[in-house]
Design a protein around this nucleic acid. Structure first.
Length: 415
RNA sequence: GCGGUGGUAGCUCAGCCGGUAGAGCAGGGGACUGUGGAUCCCCGGGUCGCGGGUUCGAGUCCCGUCCACCGCCCCA
């Protein structure tokens, strides 16, 4: 045999049940999003690399070491998108979606790419379904967006606990950063190696380090919520108030910081206790549109990890019942079976026409093997009498029925 | 990127101190000439992940490499 070509590391096929799970997650999320009047945008997978550097942040891990970057034939640096928000913002600006002066609610879905070590629930090509709201600073939007996320997870039957925090704005975050940095410097020798490195670059990250010593230091660290300016504080209080009004349960986590630079004010994460991983996360990014060359536009959004949600699905909705049409006999029978199968499909019945030849026993074995619920025998006797043999393979009972009755029964079973 | 575990039949795995590969399930055929999940009989199937080394001889030992999984970092 010739050499087998395999998938690239971290890339994979979704086959059979995996494909159905993927579809179920995406379709379910889409239905909820459409009920909230979000509109789909279909975005490119490749963007100029600088888009991500400027939005996510030069110094973040995602940009620094996880992007698939390459040079195109014109010598431009392009990248496979590592997340969806940057592209959505770029599209919002490029298509001038701000022009009518209202706010815009968009969603997208598709593959993202990060060059990381693959493991369970983490692949180099993974999929996200994301939602973005452009053009409102109203905390009602924050609460409703989180509520929407909550509804998607509940509809999927996925359990996750919600954590929220506020990261402040241009006015208050620098003040907090200074205070935190001062505090962390005093305790530098208690921090792990990684965190000492983080100190200058991204001191907020130290707060959610899992190393014992760092956690102790973080416990006593100044909390951002104590440093919020009036506007941010009010915003944060309102978001919590509205969430409670919606009946969405949450816990406040002052150490929740997120790894991307563009966040302001509200940030949130839904964490699955079963996976020990975040399945959906997002927040507000009030300066990003402006920073990417658009008009000043407050905005917020989230992204859900499709693969992670797939791992948490308890059950898939069943496929509709399957009938196998079994031709038994000569050419005339095959012609009839072709027509019969087509008519059944036209009536909405999931139908497989058996291409097997030979003993009828083999035909039934085939029907059984592919998981059929019914077998419909089209043989010489059926042609003569006009009565078709319909067998319920689960109950192991069969009847000879006129075609109209066969259709009626199968349609009923399919509904 | 770092650490750990593992790759043997389609699948799950066994294979001892190195002596040239096995089980169960799955698959194909039959017992059973228009009826499937049970039973019995028969059968096919393997570059032991890949490359190199040690050895008279390597699935087994050594080195490298690829891949998967788990943890770390990070993240959806």
């Amino acid at each position: 045999m010739a050499e087998k070509v395999k998938t690239v590391r971290g890339f994979r096929d979704l086959v059979g049940e995996e494909a159905r799970k993927y579809r179920f997650v995406v379709d379910t999320a889409r239905k909820v999003l459409e009920r909230y009047n979000f509109e789909e945008v279909i975005l490119p997978t490749v963007e100029y690399a600088k888009l991500f550097a400027r939005s996510i942040g030069e110094a973040t891990d995602v940009v620094e070491k996880e992007m698939f970057v390459f040079t195109d034939k014109g010598g431009r640096e392009v990248a496979l998108r590592p997340e969806g928000t940057a592209g959505a913002v770029r599209a919002f600006i490029e298509n001038k979606l701000y022009a009518d002066g209202t706010y815009k609610k968009l969603f997208y879905e598709g593959p993202m790419f990060r060059h990381e070590r693959p493991q369970r629930g983490r692949y180099r090509e993974f999929h996200q379904i994301g939602a973005e709201v452009f053009g409102t600073a109203n905390p009602v939007a924050d609460a409703e967006l989180v509520g929407l996320a909550d509804e998607i997870l509940k509809t999927l039957g996925v359990e996750a606990r919600l954590e929220i925090n506020s990261l402040g704005c241009k006015k208050c975050r620098p003040r907090y950063r200074e205070a935190l940095l001062r505090y962390l410097r005093e305790h530098e020798e208690e921090l792990c190696e990684d965190c000492r490195r983080r100190l200058e670059r991204n001191p907020l990250r130290v707060l959610d380090c899992k190393v014992e010593g760092c956690r102790r230091v973080a416990q006593e660290a100044p909390k951002i919520t104590d440093y919020l300016c009036e506007e941010c504080k009010t915003h944060h209080e309102k978001v919590k108030e509205y969430l409670s009004a919606l009946g969405v349960e949450f816990t406040e986590n002052p150490y929740l910081v997120r790894g991307l630079d563009y966040y302001t004010k509200t940030v949130f994460e839904f964490v699955s206790p079963e996976l020990g991983k975040t399945v959906l996360a997002g927040g507000r990014y009030d300066y990003l549109v402006e920073e990417l060359g658009g008009p000043p536009t407050p905005a917020l959004g989230f992204a859900a990890g499709v693969e992670r949600l797939m791992l948490l699905l308890k059950e898939l909705p069943p496929r509709p019942p399957l009938v196998v049409v079994i031709p038994f006999g000569g050419e005339e029978v095959k012609r009839e079976a072709l027509k019969v199968a087509r008519l059944l499909r036209k009536e909405g019945v999931r139908t497989e026409l058996s291409y097997r030849e030979g003993k009828i026993k083999k035909q039934f074995e085939f029907a059984d093997k592919i998981g059929a619920d019914f077998a419909l025998v089209v043989g010489e006797d059926e042609l003569k009498s006009g009565l078709y043999t319909l067998k319920d393979l689960r109950r192991r009972e069969q009847e000879r029925l006129p075609f109209e009755e066969v259709v009626r029964r199968l349609k009923e079973a399919s509904s």
